[in-house]
Design a binder for these strands. Structure first.
Lengths: 343, 343
DNA sequence: CCAGCCGCCGAAAACGTTTTCAGAAACGTA
DNA sequence: TACGTTTCTGAAAACGTTTTCGGCGGCTGG
């Protein structure tokens, strides 16, 4: 028979059922299952066994109602591809200790009114906190200061310095990329990157230029090649670069997409990578970077880490220890074959 | 003053507060706000205004407790990249009518015990239904028949035919790809695809071969080129193909990644696409397909649609109209420049 | 003027838990 | 034996809603 079997969480077996089955009151049953001290060991055992036999699963909703904590957080994103939100979600799941906290994922699709809508819904569900993940790494409008729950902005910082924002360290990433190329022995380093309206493009470029300047170097071609975040621009810029500056020996691309375009043209021109020209990307977008020819050295955005920190800060804020300002999360160098020490 | 301002959803203003403020009982307030008929228009207006002034937001948790419906569903995925789950999530959000239903996204990371863990948590949160998104389009173990809520399997079908599974129409997609090439006038068509252990690879190939056979054709090279889901395999296979069968005039790649490898070699060999050889991919993975040179015609998996249908079927099941078996969702041809009518 | 009806409102129960507090049982001590 | 103490248990209130049902007042028709 199935009735007492361990299998089926039958529809709605409640604490009352468990209590009755164990021959105690609901109060005692509750205390027994929650490890409260004031219950005899033998009684507790009986209750626990009853719960198992009935495959009791406590109704979190009722618990939330009374404890005033839902054990949920909202993850509000506008990231159509899920490229940023999923790693961040995974980091957050980790940090929240699985099973303790569940997360509502809402995609606002870059639409302010849809975002407002989702926000209302989440608040009405009494989430304990909110993580807001932007679509692009530039400041975004704050949700406001008067929300009843703590918020942390991840990837795209809030425009209100009073909020807490977590961003990847683009300046540091730019430095790191150039530093790696320098360590490998390259000196004539160009930087081809994306849309100059993006803070990320500016920051990565700044980091790169700073590190070059420390060695008394200028970028190959004289300045940074801003353009678009696409392979096509990577190809076009590389062609111009090779013409203007044929002795370039390394290219730092502002994204892996751009890097793919760069590699493509180098390959077309029969220029060996990395022995003649080294290439480094940015983002560690696996499908692009790992499949490249040769596999692409790049800067990993460390998004799980970012998600983990977001969850930690949110937990702290929920305990009453809020923080504010912009915190930058370090990035990581992923070495593959498109850069290598010059002999 | 902020007190009567519309802005801040102040901590926990309850229906009692609204009722008191409007000078009615909680019962009446509830009915007024929910559009129940047995309340005078004037009274209703007073309550609504009170609610607005206090910026009342009903506590969904309390509502759920009494209505026995949480208005939430769980989306259980193992899709590390979010490539499948996010579109499916978006489709589901659409179909559920925004704000009515919220979704918990849980990433099991292909780990059975983590999945079990998430499942317990979701059931304990009393989700109204479950969508299970697999990592790869092959059958996966069923969650079991004795769950207290309806389940629909999306992308990866369940191994229990009693369950309802929604899968993309890989056979139809294979047919569609070849059909498109035929319409464009190509006749010597090769098929390079991924790991033969994947049902998706087999199905796409089957569709392709069927359509070819209808024209009395065989695939160029005699058979399907199975291998791996990577650009590298796409490159290798293309080289072999060109050697063995230099008069090939079209290549159907089993994925966009493979297609990129194919294009790469054709380009290297200075073979014009599409005038000499046409290429079609599969997946419509934007970053790969749209950035390709030339932009890649491909088969779109139609995942939002799949998510929408999943949500509809789930809703139906929640209303007491379950279905079962495997339902295939049609795919879509996305025409770009890598195929074009001959001449 | 009265019976009956209808429209509107509110008291109270219910949902499934946790927590408080009073009381019962068992035991040791004077 | 009486009493204080310690352990353990259970009744009841609380969380914030929805829903049922009884009641009150006014209106209509006879």
């Amino acid at each position: 028979m199935e009735a007492t079997g361990g299998g089926a969480p039958n529809r709605s077996v409640t604490l009352r059922d468990v209590a009755r089955f164990a021959g105690v009151s609901v109060a005692t049953a509750s205390k027994a299952l929650n490890g409260q001290p004031q219950v005899r060991a033998e009684t507790r055992a009986r209750v626990i066994q009853a719960a198992e036999q009935l495959s009791f699963s406590p109704n979190t909703i009722a618990q939330s109602l009374i404890t005033q904590r839902s054990g949920t957080v909202g993850l509000l994103t506008s990231d159509l591809e899920g490229r940023f939100s999923i790693p961040i979600l995974m980091g957050a799941e980790d940090a929240f200790g699985a099973g303790q906290t569940s997360v509502f994922l809402c995609d606002a699709r870059d639409d302010a009114i849809r975002e407002k809508h989702h926000l209302r819904a989440l608040l009405s569900r009494r989430v304990d906190g909110l993580i807001v993940v932007g679509a692009r790494p530039d400041t975004r409008p704050s949700l406001g200061r008067d929300l009843p729950v703590p918020v942390v902005y991840a990837y795209a910082p809030s425009d209100d310095p009073q909020d807490l924002s977590l961003v990847t360290d683009n300046v540091g990433g730019g430095r790191m990329a150039v530093d790696h190329l320098l360590r490998c022995g390259f000196r004539r380093i160009a930087h081809i990157t994306g849309d100059p309206d993006y803070g990320a493009a500016q920051d990565r470029a700044r980091g790169a230029l700073e590190r070059l300047a420390e060695q008394g170097l200028e970028p190959a071609g004289g300045e940074v090649w801003f353009g678009m975040w696409s392979e096509a621009w990577g190809r076009g810029a590389t062609r111009m670069l090779l013409e203007r500056c044929p002795d370039v020996d390394a290219i730092f691309a502002g994204s892996d997409e751009i890097a793919r375009g760069v590699l493509d043209v180098l390959h077309e021109e029969r220029i060996e990578v990395p022995s003649r020209v080294a290439v480094i990307g940015f983002d560690n977008w696996k499908v692009l970077a790992a499949n490249a020819r040769p596999p692409l050295t790049t800067i990993d955005l460390n998004l799980e880490q970012l998600g983990r920190i977001a969850a930690q800060r949110l937990s702290a804020a929920m305990e009453g220890n809020p923080s504010s300002g912009v915190e930058t999360v370090p990035v990581r160098l992923i070495t593959r074959e498109s850069t290598a020490p010059l002999r």
